[in-house]
Nucleic acid binder design. Structure first.
Ligand SMILES: [Zn+2]
Ligand SMILES: [Zn+2]
Ligand SMILES: [Zn+2]
Ligand SMILES: [Zn+2]
Lengths: 131, 131
DNA sequence: CAAGGATGTGTAATGTCATAACATTATTGT
DNA sequence: ACAATAATGTTATGACATTACACATCCTTG
């Protein structure tokens, strides 16, 4: 299990790992033209797999992707993202209390959750200081 | 304040209020062709205003819009959405504990939040029963 | 009233994000 | 070797959103 990454997956993963901010699929594609990638699907397919593996997260409010910064992230069941709109930096964290409260609501309402998105947009500490 | 809605805003608001599920901007446009709307921008401009007024919410994970179901919604600072992937129904709720926990994290990290998205995708009680 | 500003509108063109459909090649298990 | 599975390459298309420009309306203020 956790098989090695394929060529395209490796290329996409490296691009995201080296980025300072989330990247759109098309931006990734542009950066991999020289490596032979030509079509959006090549990137999207790699992103799908990497996301399944928990190595990459999709940020719904940005339509962009970011490498996981959280060591054993896919063991966490609920990840929250704090996204700086000035510098693009993303921090991810988990909070058991938040998870318990949301679980409580869904249980009480008979809702079966499949995937939960928590994204906080704003300005990070470094960027708030810069007036 | 809370000025009356303009013609286009009223049309868009009525369309969303009468919908059973979130609608994309282009779906709204299609439903308003007979009322004279011709271009996406006419819908997007109305949606922007309605969202500012708190009458409409954008669901980031769907790229779609829904009429606010929460009476005095814009007084709440944090709304969570439970979105059924089977029937499309959306329920919105707020939770002060969740809000406090997220506020706690941002304060501790010097992050200044502007907008927070919480969206739970899954299946509602009614749809879970249908096996 | 006239001038100016703010807001709403109409339209075309373009930009951005994502998937469908199909053919081919590589990998794996028996 | 053979079949099954997974990955890849390519073209076209679908879906979501914004830029740019022109015009109309309303309101304010000198
Ligand atoms: Zn992670
Ligand atoms: Zn920042
Ligand atoms: Zn609401
Ligand atoms: Zn349902």
């Amino acid at each position: 299990m956790s098989a090695d990454l394929t060529r395209n997956q490796t290329l996409v993963m490296k691009t995201l790992s080296g980025a300072e901010a989330p990247l759109s699929a098309y931006t990734i594609l542009d950066r991999l033209r020289d490596d032979g990638l030509r079509a959006p699907l090549q990137v999207y397919r790699a992103l799908d797999k990497l996301t399944e593996m928990g190595l990459v997260h999709r940020l719904e409010s940005l339509n962009a992707f970011v490498a996981c910064a959280h060591p054993n992230c896919h063991e966490q069941e609920l990840i929250a993202f704090a996204i700086c709109e000035a510098c693009g930096k993303v921090e991810e964290f988990s909070d058991d209390v938040v998870k318990d409260r949301l679980d409580g609501w869904t249980r009480a309402h008979g809702f079966r959750p499949a995937k939960t998105t928590i994204e906080i947009r704003g300005n990070c500490g470094g960027c708030v200081g810069k007036a």
